[in-house]
Simulated assay, not measured.
Amino acid sequence: MRLKSIAILAALALSTAISGCSTIGGQMFTNNYGAMTDAGYQLPRIPIEKVPARYHRQEVRYDSSEKPGTIIVDTQNKFLYFIEGDGMAMRYGIGVGREGFEWHGTAHIALKREWPTWTPPAPMIKRQPELAKFAGGMEPGLKNPLGARAMYLFNKGGDMGYRLHGSPEWFSIGKAMSSGCIRLMNQDIIDLYDRTSVGAKVIVM
Rank of each mutant, 00 (worst) to 15 (best):
R57F: 00
Q58C: 05
Q58F: 01
Q58A: 15
V60W: 02
R61M: 09
Y62K: 13
S64T: 11
S65I: 11
I71C: 10
I71P: 01
I72L: 14
V73E: 05
D74V: 11
T75P: 02
N77R: 15
K78R: 15
K78S: 10
F79W: 13
L80P: 06
Y81P: 02
F82G: 02
F82D: 01
I83A: 03
E84N: 14
G85H: 10
D86V: 06
A89W: 03
A89K: 10
A89F: 04
R91P: 00
R91Q: 15
Y92M: 05
I94E: 03
I94A: 06
G95H: 01
G97W: 09
G97A: 04
R98H: 14
R98L: 04
G100F: 10
G100C: 08
F101T: 04
F101S: 07
F101I: 00
E102D: 12
E102F: 04
E102V: 10
W103T: 09
W103Q: 08
H104M: 13
H104S: 15
G105P: 02
T106D: 14
T106K: 14
A107T: 15
I109C: 02
I109G: 07
I109D: 04
L111T: 12
L111R: 15
K112I: 09
K112E: 09
K112P: 05
R113V: 15
R113M: 12
E114A: 13
P116D: 07
T117K: 12
W118T: 09
W118F: 09
T119G: 05
T119H: 00
T119R: 12
A122P: 00
K126P: 02
K126C: 00
Q128S: 10
P129C: 05
L131N: 01
K133A: 12
F134L: 07
A135W: 03
G136P: 06
G136R: 11
E139Y: 06
P140F: 08
G141F: 12
G141S: 10
L142E: 03
N144L: 05
G147V: 09
A148H: 10
R149K: 14
M151A: 07
M151C: 04
Y152W: 11
N155G: 03
M160D: 01
Y162G: 03
L164Y: 01
H165G: 08
G166Y: 04
G166A: 07
S167R: 11
P168W: 03
P168R: 06
P168A: 03
E169T: 08
S172A: 13
S172V: 05
G174N: 09
K175L: 13
A176G: 03
M177R: 09
M177C: 00
S178N: 08
